[in-house]
């Protein structure tokens, strides 16, 4: 296990997480976002499948006690708890192009002028982190934007909700198989402001769970994905 690790605002990070352990992410600043990619650690291709996760659990958001599911129909992680009832998974992460609006407001940003506060997109950070693991652009997939909410209108319109997460808000993810998590704390691409927040990551031991676990009893689909995760290596 690791000691608590603080991911600075606007930075990127990755973590290999052993099956059964629980990752607790806590927003250290108001407005923090954690754009998160999930992979099966021992599988070259299996990764988070947002559409399958949503349709199997009849949801357009990520909220406890949902199970995050992979292309192979196996649970990657269970969202065992959160102080927030909505984590966005529909709107992707920021690209360099989204930095233009911040440059228009605040002027250009570079390492030369801003040192480690240099504004970088989530895409740049996620790709950098993916490459450390021998992965690249083909491994990008629809992410979960932990701590972010994008509201859905009755006509399907999307509206970024500012002021959703505050310092102290948290979410816990229980690894249902060995995982690789790759994440960025750059602002959400629909956030008009450049006000990234830091996120604390803590790994907890976790505990065995039984058939009464809220993620198991949530829906039959959730239970089947959890059973599939237990059978990943027969």
């Amino acid at each position: 296990m690791i000691p608590a690790h603080d991911v600075p605002a606007g930075a990127h990070w990755s973590l290999a997480l052993r099956a059964g352990r629980v990752l607790r992410l806590t927003a250290l600043d108001d407005g923090a976002v954690c754009s998160t990619l999930l992979f099966a650690h021992r599988d070259p291709v299996d990764r988070l499948n947002v559409p399958d996760t949503l349709k199997a659990q009849m949801s357009a958001r990520i909220t406890p006690p949902m199970v995050l599911m992979s292309d192979r129909g196996a649970a990657l992680a269970s969202v065992t708890g959160s102080s927030l009832d909505w984590h966005d998974c529909l709107t992707g992460h920021s690209l360099d192009r989204h930095l233009d609006r911040h440059a228009a407001v605040s002027g250009p940003s570079s390492y030369a002028t801003d040192r480690n506060d240099w504004r970088r997109s989530a895409r740049a950070g996620l790709l950098s982190e993916l490459r450390k693991h021998g992965r690249g652009p083909a491994d990008l997939h629809a992410c979960v934007n932990l701590f972010a909410k994008v509201a859905i209108g009755p006509d399907g319109g999307l509206t970024f909700v500012p002021d959703h997460a505050h310092a102290g808000d948290w979410v816990t993810l229980r690894a249902e198989q060995d995982l690789l998590l790759v994440l960025s704390t750059a602002p959400h691409p629909l956030d008009p402001a450049w006000a990234p927040g830091a996120v604390r990551a803590e790994v907890e031991a976790g505990a065995p769970y039984g058939p009464d676990d809220p993620s198991v009893t949530f829906r039959p689909e959730s239970a089947r994905a959890l059973a599939n995760a237990a059978a990943v290596l027969a």
Partner: peptide, 15 residues
């Protein structure tokens, strides 16, 4: 947003 059906996701959804 509904994705594609797969043999694997069919197992999750239908058994």
């Amino acid at each position: 947003l509904g994705g594609a059906c797969a043999q694997e996701s069919n197992v999750v959804r239908y058994g």
